[in-house]
Design a protein around this nucleic acid. Structure first.
Lengths: 159, 159
DNA sequence: ACCCATTGGTTGCGTGCGCAAGTATCTCTC
DNA sequence: GAGAGATACTTGCGCACGCAACCAATGGGT
């Protein structure tokens, strides 16, 4: 034994990787707890509604949502089910292709998003951005942007 | 609507945050799939066994594991249950305090860890480190280390 | 016109894990 | 030395989500 495999990762590297994993777990847990207790939505719900709010006509196909959120198709099917039940989203059939169904943000959903967003953004500031200068944020954006899954567009292949 | 709340996050900031979230989701999913298919363990299993391997006498109290992994106590109880069933870990009572029970890495567990570690570390290199120079890794370690939950020790409590 | 490969979406099933409650043990105080 | 409260762990329950299987629609090739 002696040489445990992790020793191939030098000190700084291991620290970077560990901080990456652990900070993510901690921050996401706190954000989620806050959203749930204060607005009754999960951070996934919030994320989906935000993507919808930014999309043209406030609607996106299910697959497009899956790509952006990194959930599977079945995952967003059920997530959107919940948002529909809550009245935040409605499903709209696509006239050109009967296979696709859009999720469209309702006005009620948009209101929910705005009211939740205020405290949510403040929490993200407190948990994440507050620890960095503007220049450091820019550096982080550049570095993290190189990682797989972080491609700027997020949409891709809308064909 | 006009000013959607997210617009308070400037461009670079939003990019940093989005890349942080999305890269994590993508990388973890890939790592997990590889570990499961090639070695039959999850990345959580791996993480726990690694902490045990690095601990004195290859054992840690359940609570200590919970802190390091950012799982709840009930989470590691069941995770360790699985590792015990797989023969990778055994529970050891603490002689000084009958409340605590240690999880101790068995020789079999250590073997599993080593064989999985080889390909796992390579995957982490490929998915994470390969995208950065050594100096950039050091910078990342420093920046990410400031985030809540990333304290070197492993204990935190973001509350 | 038909077949077949591809794509979009939903459903069945299993699992991981958090929360809250329960149990056992320790420690402090009177 | 008898509670009262803290601490370590486990258990009951429920939900979120991935995987695989499935159906429906589309589109290209012959």
């Amino acid at each position: 034994m002696e040489t445990l495999i992790e020793e191939r990762l030098e000190g700084a590297a291991l620290e970077a990787w560990r901080s990456y994993l652990q900070s993510h777990a901690s921050i996401v847990r706190v954000l989620d707890a806050e959203l749930v207790s204060e607005h009754g939505i999960t951070s996934r719900d919030y994320e989906v509604m935000l993507y919808l709010a930014q999309a043209p006509e406030r609607r996106l196909a299910m697959s497009a949502l899956a790509e952006r959120t990194r959930l599977t198709r079945s995952g967003i099917t059920r997530l959107v089910d919940g948002l529909v039940a809550a009245g935040c989203v409605q499903r709209v059939a696509c006239p050109n292709d009967a296979r696709v169904s859009y999720a469209r943000l309702t006005d009620a959903g948009h209101d929910t998003l705005r009211s939740a967003g205020c405290s949510h953004v403040r929490s993200i500031q407190r948990l994440f951005f507050e620890h960095f200068s503007p220049a450091e944020v820019a550096a982080l954006a550049e570095l993290l942007g190189r990682l797989p899954g972080a491609e700027a567009g997020g949409q891709c292949t809308v064909s």
